[in-house]
Amino acid sequence: METFIVGVLLSFLVIIAIGIIVLRDLLAAVILLGVYSLIAAGAFVVMDAVDVAFTEAAVGAGISTILYLGALRFTTDRQKPRGHDSLPALLFVVLTGALLIYGTLDMPHYGSATSPAQTHEQVAVRFLEVSGDEVGPPNIVTSVLASYRGYDTLGETVVVFAAGIAVMSLLGLRRRRPQQDISDDERAES
């Protein structure tokens, strides 16, 4: 049943992705990306990744949609129409996808308990067995995030800090200026 639910949600995601490819209106595409993130978050709950689900719902569907909307506000929400779709790109994508699907034939099946990721003693099994005593919190994801992989999380914070600095230095702190809107209108008229 779980597998079925995840399968249906994944099919929704595929439909949404096709919608994003086809749509020319960037605003609609951004909203579809938010829907895509939210449905992915729902599927993550079914697949037992509750922490990932609420991070994806808050950060992926929430904050990043707001960032995109802000960027559209300062640029334009129209994608210029092109007559044709790129055939080489389509061929490349189909070929790569076929190779990747060929590569999945050896992969452990969904939910397999005997796959290497599940049985390696030094990693997942050890976290499950001893993190309650060694670290404390009942939520194992918290233990791994803050303790066993603490440097990873520190690095993440550094990346977020650097990104904040980069955005500030690119855009500056002061905003923003009526003549942009006028030139927008002129461009729309011409």
């Binding site: 990744a49 922490d51 991070t55 997942a124 976290f127 194992i140 791994v144 999380t153």
Partner: peptide, 20 residues
């Protein structure tokens, strides 16, 4: 229990992805 390690990696990846 499901494997917690991929969850941790993806938590990091989501936040870094939004920053980039």
């Amino acid at each position: 229990y499901s494997n917690p390690l991929p969850h941790v990696l993806i938590l990091t990846a989501i936040v870094v992805g939004v920053a980039t």
